[in-house]
């Protein structure tokens, strides 16, 4: 699975912002502490008023999830 890598500054720009007028970006950290968003968020972004066009240029990286060994 592929996700989109964010810098700390890019993460801050997306927090609390909607990508299609209904659903919100959810920048998340992977197992190495990298911030990322999903392809669904990028592909679903409607770019109201030209917002967030830059997310299509974000580097693609392999999804490296935080592993939860026990249910919490």
């Amino acid at each position: 699975m592929i996700v989109r890598l964010l810098t700390e500054e890019q993460k801050d720009l997306l927090v609390g912002q909607t990508y299609d007028g209904v659903q919100y970006f959810n920048p998340t950290q992977d197992a190495e502490g990298n911030w990322f968003i999903s392809q669904e968020e990028v592909n679903g972004c409607t770019h109201e008023n030209g917002a967030f066009e830059w997310i299509h240029e974000l580097p693609l990286i392999a999804y490296n999830p935080v592993i939860t060994e026990f249910p919490i």
Binding site: Y24, I37, S38, E40
Partner: peptide
């Protein structure tokens, strides 16, 4: 509901 992140 407030949807966050990627959904189909």
């Amino acid at each position: 509901l407030v949807f966050n992140g990627g959904w189909t």
